[in-house]
Design a binder for these strands. Structure first.
Length: 589
RNA sequence: GCCUUUAUAGCUCAGUCGGUAGAGCGCAUCCAUGGUAAGGAUGAGGUCAUCGGUUCGAUUCCGAUUAAAGGCUCCA
């Protein structure tokens, strides 16, 4: 029995399930055209061209048909055909997408097919030997997806599913998915009062409520303090500028559709055209340009807590992860070529320090994001320049022994990036932190320095974030900790529950005193049903709950039961404050 | 921007085959509770997302808009 933990076998298994799905769809809906159906991390999908979406009823009919195919114990057989015969076979079966795929295969490609019963699919394989091996599967959702991933192409109907060698594993996986979704920041963050949205304010424009705003403030202070310690110079630059600035930087040509523009560009000769900033770089560069620079000035490290505005397309917004206005720990390092590696390492060290401080260091992966030579319109600079800087960056990464994967076409328009990636509870990956090497904008902006030999030279610029965008970081922290953030950034570190209304005044006095000692504490005076409140507090994952009785003042973690039920490990507020201060202090190493 | 789905009380949701709405939790007031993962009574909250159409009459049907959810594309 092959090991399902083996990625290659698992992919094969799921890919075969995708074929079973396609076979079932063709049996039920012969008019549907097949596109592609690969295995993915969590299962598989298959794309179909069909006028209307599959309904839940149809999905369950398809599942039933798939079960039948599994029970038919169909052997899965591979065969090869020369290109012309392959084309003919797919054309006969009226599969235009398959024909297109064949036409795009390289001249020397071996064109293989897989047959199971009445179903044949163009496929490189490999596959399981028999459909009966797929013991447990489920179709999970339907979605639209563009043919070949391009929005210029037709939208197809995608069916997602997953499969396992037995029903138990399937159930465990589905349960696990359900559990993960309970940590969804978009749900939990709203329930816990971190943020909200208002339909007449608009998409991608969340309101940070006191709790969410507090966390962001704490992170921001931490970042700013740490950057100061690491030799960063603070700037504070405008939220908008005339279009002229973005024309120099290249944003006007390469990023304009994602910018909020004030004024009519058509009438630029008659009226002022401003744009909200989508990035801080061209603003921060102006600080460098205020005087002539010597090699002795370098490196210069600029940092700014910067609010940015990006006019994302309407369907792209997601909770706090993808929004239209966000605040980022932005920074630009102006460095001489011989300083590039060391400064790059410094940026990575800072990023890793931040990840460790918030506990996300084990949850990230690294992506070396390169340009796509086939899509040069998206970028500025020549192929030679790109090759040079990408090689430099690769050397740096390899020297550090960092393990990363390569993302073609993921670069910024002005240079390659090291992206620190993280997945949300739905398994969708986003960039949390990015460190970019820019070899072009210095020249565009005329940012020179005078070198030892008296020659003017253009520096490299490192664009980087240290903790990324605060809203996104908050979202991922909520998901990571299911709302119970580490004590030093928890917006509510303790809650005081008066055991009865007689103790209300005492509770407020205590809260006041604890706040003066720097503890973030709330009084819950809404009712006296303390048992229920304890359960709620447990659900909200509070770190401490102070329960006030007569003259006594006591507390424990919420995991500890009420003192009446047994041992509690009583801790007085003074101890709590001391412990809290210790933990907050420990976050800095 | 594209595909699918959704929008009713603070929250979770039910409902009206078209005659202006209900539940649970929460909230308010009162009562009870002195060591308790607590009980009861009463009450206040909704132009049923917005705008338009059909209709004698729309929250319910139709259309548009806005917002939310998942995916695609895009991206921090």
């Amino acid at each position: 029995m092959p090991n399902f933990d083996d990625g290659a076998y698992r992919s094969t298994f799921r890919h075969t399930t995708a074929h079973i799905l396609a076979q079932a769809v063709k049996r039920l809906y012969p008019e549907v055209n097949l596109a592609i159906g690969p295995a993915i991390d969590t299962g598989f999908y298959y794309d179909f061209d069909r006028a209307t979406a599959f309904t839940p009823e149809e999905l369950s009919k398809i599942e039933d048909e798939m079960k039948r195919i599994v029970k038919e114990h169909l052997p899965v057989e591979r065969f090869e055909l020369p290109r012309e015969q392959a084309r003919r076979l797919m054309a006969e079966k009226n599969e235009p997408y398959k024909v297109e795929l064949i036409d795009d295969l390289p001249a020397d490609a071996i064109i293989s097919f897989y047959r199971q019963g009445d179903f044949v699919d163009l496929c490189a394989g490999p596959h399981l030997d028999n459909t009966s091996e797929v013991k447990a599967f489920k179709l999970t959702q339907v979605a639209g997806a563009y043919w070949r991933g391009s929005e210029k192409n037709k939208m197809l109907q995608r069916i997602y599913g997953t499969s396992f060698p037995d029903k138990q594993q399937l159930k465990e996986f589905l349960d696990q998915q359900e559990e993960a979704k309970k940590r969804d920041h978009n749900k939990l963050g709203r329930e816990l009062g971190f943020f909200t949205t208002v339909d007449y304010i608009g998409q991608g424009l969340p309101i940070m409520l006191p709790k969410g705003a507090r966390v962001i403030q704490l992170l921001q202070r931490f970042v700013e303090d740490e950057e100061e310690r690491r030799g960063y110079l603070l700037t504070k630059t405008p939220f908008m500028a005339k279009s002229d600035l973005y024309k120099i930087s290249g944003h006007w040509d390469h990023y304009r559709e994602s910018m909020f523009i004030l004024g009519d560009p058509e009438k630029a000769d008659q009226e002022e055209v401003l744009a909200l900033r989508p990035m801080t770089c061209p603003f921060q560069f102006q600080a460098y340009l205020t005087k002539t620079r010597s090699y002795r000035d370098l490196p210069i490290r600029y940092g700014e807590t910067s609010t940015l505005f990006r006019n994302e397309a309407s369907g792209e917004m997601h909770g706090l992860i993808r929004i239209r206005q966000f605040t980022i720990s932005e920074g630009h390092l102006i460095v001489a070529p011989d300083q590039l590696e060391q400064e790059f390492r410094g940026c990575l060290d800072l990023a890793q320090f931040m990840l460790k401080a918030v506990g996300l260091d084990d949850d990230v992966s690294y992506r070396f994001s390169k340009w796509d030579p086939a899509d040069q319109e998206k970028y500025i600079g020549s192929a030679d320049q790109w090759d040079t800087v990408q090689n430099t960056m690769q050397d740096i990464l390899d020297n550090m022994g960092l393990s990363y994967r390569v993302g073609i076409g993921e670069a910024a328009f002005y240079g390659p990036k090291l992206d620190i990636q993280i997945k949300n509870v739905f398994g969708k990956e986003d960039t949390l932190i990015t460190i970019q090497i820019d070899f072009q904008l210095a020249e565009r902006f005329g940012m020179e320095y005078t070198d030892r030999d008296g020659q003017k030279r253009y520096p490299y610029i490192i664009h980087r974030t240290s903790i990324g965008c605060y809203e996104r970081t908050l979202a991922l922290l909520i998901e990571k900790y299911a709302g119970a953030l580490p004590l030093w950034i928890a917006p509510e570190q303790a809650r005081i529950l008066p055991i009865s209304s007689k103790h209300l005044d005492a509770a407020y006095d205590m809260a006041k005193s604890l706040r003066e000692q720097g503890l973030r504490v709330e009084v819950d005076d809404r009712d006296e049903k303390i048992g229920k409140k304890i359960r709620e507090a447990q659900m909200e994952k509070l770190h401490y709950m102070l329960v006030i009785g007569d003259q006594e003042v006591e507390q424990g973690t919420v995991a500890v039961r009420s003192r009446l039920d047994g041992d509690l490990g009583v801790m007085m507020p003074a101890d709590l404050v001391a412990r809290l201060k210790k933990e907050v202090a420990e976050r800095r190493h």
